[in-house]
């Protein structure tokens, strides 16, 4: 990791003080698919501590194992090596404690906005009274500003509204930790910015532990307390954390002019680009000596003379 480019000394504070108590801890987590020679390590040796109440963003290129990473944290897949613990308990299966907001919303198309949110509320808070659950559902529909569309089905909603529904569905489960898997990447640029602001607003009210996986550095800086780059896969691992250190509440337009913001963005971007270049160089070096040597064979005419050959091309 000596190629790390730091173009200028910027105020990047490394997390040198030991973290208070991590709510989620990943130690030496590896995950790969296939076996033997066809095996590819998708993520390799992931170590991460997420603190209570912090907003952590993991930034990486497409195809660098972001989805595998999220699924590992959510408990949808099990690590091959290493451990993931949440509040000291090992993560073995998905749980409503780690509320996952899916990249492509994953709303059930046969349920309305209200129905989708009610499904999760009803299955997580089974012991509540029906009236309490209903009120809870309405509160979260209201929170994401979809009261006017609560009776609509997902196919009648815009992308932004769908993602808001998905967000409300997850928030309504009252998870201890929120997992956002590229929550904005399927949206157009304008909706993206708007919904980003909304997520920020909701988070600043609730102050919930939040892990966001994204490919957008600006978005990560705007939302997160810490940014951890995901080195490009195969065998992706996490890079050093960048502390954002911008006061909240944050304002996007103000940030655009902030020197700190710009230098931080450059630092993260340059780091990612440099790591990718290095990965490519290694890959090239690895494949260089594997050049195929062509066998010395001359083509020979195998047609027998005086025999009709069907489908022979005209000469």
């Amino acid at each position: 990791m000596s190629v790390l480019l730091r173009p200028e000394p910027v105020a990047i504070r490394r997390p040198d003080t030991p973290a208070p108590t991590p709510i989620l801890q990943m130690k030496g987590v590896c995950k790969g698919y296939g076996s033997g020679v066809t095996r590819t390590e998708v993520v390799n040796n992931i170590n991460l501590n997420i603190r209570e109440g912090e907003f952590l963003a993991v930034v990486g290129f497409s195809g660098s194992g972001k989805t595998t990473f999220t699924q590992l944290v959510a408990g949808l897949i099990k690590p091959d090596k290493g451990t993931i613990t949440m509040e000291g308990e090992p993560v073995t299966s998905p749980s409503p404690d780690r509320g996952l907001v899916f990249q492509n919303y994953s709303l059930l198309p046969w349920l309305t906005v209200r129905g989708n949110i009610a499904l999760s509320v009803n299955s997580v808070f089974k012991d509540w009274s029906a009236a309490d659950r209903r009120a809870h559902v309405e509160r979260f529909i209201d929170m994401v500003g979809l009261s006017h569309a609560a009776h609509r089905r997902p196919h009648e909603l815009s992308g932004g509204m769908r993602q808001r529904t998905s967000l409300a569905r997850t928030l309504a489960m009252k998870p201890k930790m929120l997992l956002l898997d590229e929550p904005l990447s399927a949206l157009d640029a304008l909706t993206r910015a708007q919904l980003g602001d909304e997520i920020l607003k909701i988070w600043e009210e609730e102050r919930q532990t939040c892990l966001m996986i994204t490919n957008d550095v600006d978005e990560a800086i705007l939302l997160a307390d810490r940014i951890v780059p995901l080195n490009p896969g195969p065998s992706a691992s996490l890079g050093p954390a960048f502390t954002v250190g911008i006061d909240r509440p944050r304002n996007k337009t103000e940030l655009n002019d902030s020197e700190h913001f710009k230098s931080l963005r450059n630092a993260v971007t340059n780091y990612l680009v440099a790591v990718r270049q290095k990965a490519r160089a290694t890959e090239q070096a690895a494949t260089k000596h594997l050049k195929f040597r062509l066998p010395e064979i001359k083509p020979e005419d195998l047609t027998r003379k005086g025999r009709a050959i069907h489908n022979q091309p005209p000469r």
């Binding site: 959510a74 949808l76 299966s93 998905p94 749980s95 409503p96 780690r98 509320g99 996952l100 899916f102 492509n104 994953s106 059930l108 046969w110 499904l119 999760s120 299955s123 997580v124 489960m173």
Partner: peptide
Amino acid sequence: VDKDFINVADVLRLSWAQRLFKIILPASL
């Protein structure tokens, strides 16, 4: 059935019957 719907069922920890009647059957109708 869309893997994401199954993931939703997993995260919500639906029982076998709930998973069948609330996710799998409506999705395959």
